[in-house]
């Protein structure tokens, strides 16, 4: 079976942290552990200061294996307030990357 993954259109990520809490709630992760982690990235360029967020998917992400057995999408995908996380077969996500600016791909273990 084709492997699935997550496509993060991080240019849209506002740093709202919803994905992290969605993941925590779904998996009952204790403090200190999460499937996804958002970081602020501040760059001081000659023209202006840029504030961006990057999204790292961690070793604890199981792509919401239980959840996606039904019709549900992963918890972070559903709740991302900027709708900037996509779930699907890796090949399709890579194709999508060709069209989208500033994305990153997560492929699980």
């Amino acid at each position: 079976m084709a492997k699935n993954g997550l496509l993060i259109q991080y240019d849209w990520c506002t740093g709202c942290h919803a994905c992290e809490v969605a993941c925590k709630q779904e998996h009952n992760f204790p403090v200190g552990m999460c499937g996804i982690k958002v970081n602020e990235l501040v760059s001081k360029a000659p023209d202006k200061v840029y504030v961006d967020y990057t999204v790292a998917v961690t070793r604890f992400c199981d792509l919401c294996a239980e959840r996606v057995k039904g019709k549900d999408v992963p918890a972070c995908v559903k709740h991302c307030q900027a709708t900037c996380i996509k779930y699907g077969p890796l090949a399709a996500l890579v194709k999508e990357q060709e069209k989208q600016p500033r994305t990153s791909l997560f492929a699980p273990k």
Partner: peptide
């Protein structure tokens, strides 16, 4: 369908 961190907690 979306929810913020506070709603999810």
């Amino acid at each position: 369908g979306r929810l913020c961190a506070k709603g999810l907690a």
